[in-house]
Amino acid sequence: MSFGESASIYNATRLSYADEVVDRVAEVLGATRGRSILDIGCGTGIATRQLAARGFRTVGTDVDADMIEEARAVGEAGRYQVADASRLDFADAEFDGATAFGAFHWFSDEASVRSIQRVLRRGAAFVVVNKNDVGDFRESIVEIVSGHVALGNARPKLDYQPAKTLGAFGFEAVEEAAIPVIEHLPPTQALAHVRSMRLWEEVPPSLHDTVEAELRSYLASQLDACGNFQRRLSVAVVWGRKP
């Protein structure tokens, strides 16, 4: 199963980015209405729509056609297209900025970074955003699932250093900020979030009920007084500018 086959689950369960995160990104991009922004690895367009709501002219791209199909179903269809980050089909210096929300670890290679830089105007920022668990949510999920399945790619962000990557492949004035965020997830949404993770694709259907029962037990033990699971995050915002 491809990641995109989980697109409807992904769109229904993944939370939007906190206002303070999107505000910081907008500030870096230059919060002027009408600026053209390329959102790369946009998935179902969650962050693309948040940027559009702040007045940016956004174009979302993703390599996964199912994700783009879901994005088009939810938002403005013409805003999205299937594209590989390493071979962006846009003119040189076409965009006033670019973003990658929760996706850059999948295409943080030289070919992709230089492709992104090519389509930006001089001085334009490329902003990378990642939700990093401060608590043990992800590690607990990995431990539970790996108790039933030998996971092939449980930690895709291992050795991932976006600031170093941007600097190594041509961006200048690289900066980084960390924004603390707490997501409050009802148990059903927390469980659905796990099913939207790439590692879930490695769980055979015959084991779904067994693994989900163990996940429910873990989540039930972690609920706050309001009956929600608190996912504590440090959201990293990293950016550099095209020289």
Rank of each mutant, 00 (worst) to 15 (best):
H208C: 04
R195G: 06
E212R: 01
V203Y: 00
M197Q: 12
V194G: 03
E201G: 14
T210W: 02
P187L: 04
S206G: 11
T210G: 04
E212C: 02
L199W: 06
A213Y: 00
V203T: 03
P204Q: 07
L215D: 01
H193F: 15
H208M: 05
E202V: 06
A213P: 00
D209T: 01
T188W: 14
Q189N: 14
P187C: 08
E202S: 08
P205K: 09
Q189A: 14
V203R: 00
E214F: 03
W200P: 06
A213R: 03
V203M: 02
P186I: 13
P186F: 10
P186T: 15
E201H: 09
A192S: 15
P186M: 10
Q189D: 14
D209P: 00
P187Q: 11
V203K: 03
L207I: 04
P186A: 15
L199F: 10
A190M: 12
L215P: 01
H193P: 00
R195A: 13
E212D: 09
H193Q: 13
A190S: 12
T188L: 14
H208W: 12
P186Q: 14
E201Q: 13
H208D: 07
A213N: 02
H208R: 06
H208I: 02
D209Q: 08
E201F: 10
E214K: 05
S206F: 02
A213E: 02
T210V: 14
L207F: 06
P205A: 12
Q189H: 11
Q189W: 11
V194K: 05
